[in-house]
C-alpha cells in the first residue's frame, strides 16, 4: 500500500490506529462539557486546510483499508446495500456528486473525464479504472449507488421526498452504529428514528424534518453524532450483534485505554438535483481513548460528558455497562480546570 494509506484491519487482530496527524484532525464532537440532543446543523462549507471539513468528502489515511473492510462485509451479507427500484436516479445523482467532488478535491488520486454521457473514472488508490455511460446502469459492475459507495468512506442513505416526509429508500450501510438498513428501508423520517429515546418528545425530529424538507441543492449541511465502540469495529451492525456483543464484557482497567473507542459520525446532507432526493452520508471516525487523552482538553471534556449523561442515553448508545470503567480511566485526566468553548484542542 502507498505511503498515503494505512494497511490495517477493523476485525480479527484489529490493527487500526490513528497517526499523530489523524489524532490532530480528529472531529471531536463536543463543543461544551455536557451533551444533549440538538438539531445542531450548520452549512457544510469548506473548513481549514487539513481538517476533516476541508473537502466535501474527506479521504484520509484509513481509506483503502476501510474499503477492503466494506467489501468483506458485503461479501458476508449483500443485504447491507439495497436500493428500492425508484431510487436508481438518486443513485446516479450521488455518483455524480462524489465523482465530481473527489476529482476536484483530490486530483492526484481521482480523475473524471466526460464526453457527453460517456464518462471515464480513475481511482488510483483502489486501482480502479472504469468507462461507462452515465444514466445507464448496465454499463457499471454494480448499481450506481453501490458502485460509488464501494469506493467512498462512510455509510450512505438516500431519502426520497414526498408527502411532506423523507423516506429512506436506498442505502449502503456497513459502518453503522447498530441499526439495520434491511429492516429500516422504506420507512419515513420518524419511523426510522422511532427507537431513539427522548428526542421525539423534545421535538427534535419535527424540527429536523421541517428543516430538511427545505434543504436546497448547492447548500449542503452537516452535524455530528457519536457513540462508543469497544475495539475498532466499523461494522457494529445488529445483524452481527452476537459476534461483537460479547467483546463489550471483557474490558478491564488495563485494556480500556487501548480497546475503548469514541465513535464520531460526521453526517452531511445534500439535496440531489435530478431526483430531488436527499443524500445522507454518515462518515465514521474512530479514536481510542489512549489516543484521545493525548489532547488534554478533550480528555477533561469527555470525562465530564460521560459522567453527566443520562442513563437512558448511555443505554441507547450501548455503553451503560462500561460507564464506570470509562469514568475510572478518564477521571485522572480531569483536573477540574475549565475548558474553552468549541471543538478545537486548546
Amino acid at each position: 500500500m502507498s505511503l498515503d494509506f494505512n494497511d490495517e484491519t477493523f476485525r480479527g487482530d484489529f490493527t487500526f490506529k490513528n497517526s499523530a496527524k489523524a489524532i490532530k484532525r480528529f472531529p471531536f464532537p463536543f463543543p461544551e462539557d455536557s451533551y444533549m440532543y440538538s438539531v445542531n446543523m450548520e452549512p457544510h462549507v469548506p473548513g481549514p486546510v487539513g481538517s476533516v471539513f476541508e473537502h466535501m468528502f474527506d479521504v484520509d489515511e484509513h481509506y483503502v483499508s476501510e474499503m477492503r473492510d466494506r467489501a468483506q462485509v458485503l461479501a458476508d451479507d449483500p443485504l447491507r446495500c439495497q436500493s428500492l427500484p425508484h431510487m436508481e436516479l438518486a443513485g446516479w445523482d450521488l455518483l455524480e456528486l462524489i465523482m465530481e467532488s473527489k476529482a476536484r478535491d483530490y486530483p492526484h488520486w481521482f480523475s473524471l473525464t466526460k464526453d457527453g454521457n460517456q464518462w471515464h473514472w480513475v481511482n488510483r488508490p483502489l486501482q480502479i479504472e472504469q468507462k461507462f455511460t452515465f444514466l445507464d446502469a448496465s454499463t457499471l459492475p454494480y448499481g450506481p449507488m453501490e458502485y460509488i459507495t464501494r469506493q467512498t468512506q462512510g455509510d450512505f442513505t438516500l431519502q426520497d421526498q414526498r408527502d411532506d416526509d423523507l423516506w429512506i429508500e436506498a442505502g449502503m450501510v456497513t459502518t453503522q452504529a447498530d441499526w439495520s438498513l434491511d429492516f429500516d428501508i422504506g420507512m419515513s423520517f420518524k419511523q426510522w428514528h422511532a427507537p431513539v429515546p427522548l428526542a421525539h418528545q423534545m421535538g427534535i425530529f419535527d424540527r429536523a424534518l421541517k428543516f430538511l424538507l427545505k434543504l436546497q441543492h448547492g447548500a449542503p449541511v452537516r452535524r455530528f453524532n457519536w457513540t462508543m465502540t469497544v475495539d475498532p469495529l466499523l461494522d457494529t451492525s445488529p445483524e452481527n450483534y452476537p459476534k461483537w456483543g460479547p467483546g463489550k464484557t471483557t474490558m478491564t482497567p488495563q485494556t480500556i485505554g487501548h480497546r475503548q473507542h469514541l465513535r464520531v459520525e460526521l453526517q452531511t446532507l445534500h439535496r440531489l438535483p435530478r431526483s430531488n432526493a436527499i443524500a445522507f452520508p454518515i462518515r465514521c471516525y474512530l479514536i481510542r481513548f489512549e489516543e484521545l487523552v493525548t489532547v488534554p482538553k478533550w480528555a477533561r471534556r469527555l470525562h465530564r460528558v460521560v459522567r453527566d449523561i443520562p442513563d437512558e442515553l448511555a443505554t441507547y448508545k450501548g455503553f451503560l455497562r462500561n460507564k464506570p470503567l470509562m469514568l475510572e480511566y478518564l477521571a485522572p485526566f480531569d483536573d477540574g480546570q475549565p475548558t474553552s468553548p468549541g471543538f478545537a484542542p486548546e
Binding site: 425508484h86 426520497d160 436546497q216 441543492h217 447548500a219 438535483p273 431526483s275 430531488n276
Partner: peptide, 11 residues
Amino acid sequence: QPVNLFPLDAR
C-alpha cells in the same frame, strides 16, 4: 437555485 415543490412520485 431551482426548488421543487411539485415533484413526480417516482414510484
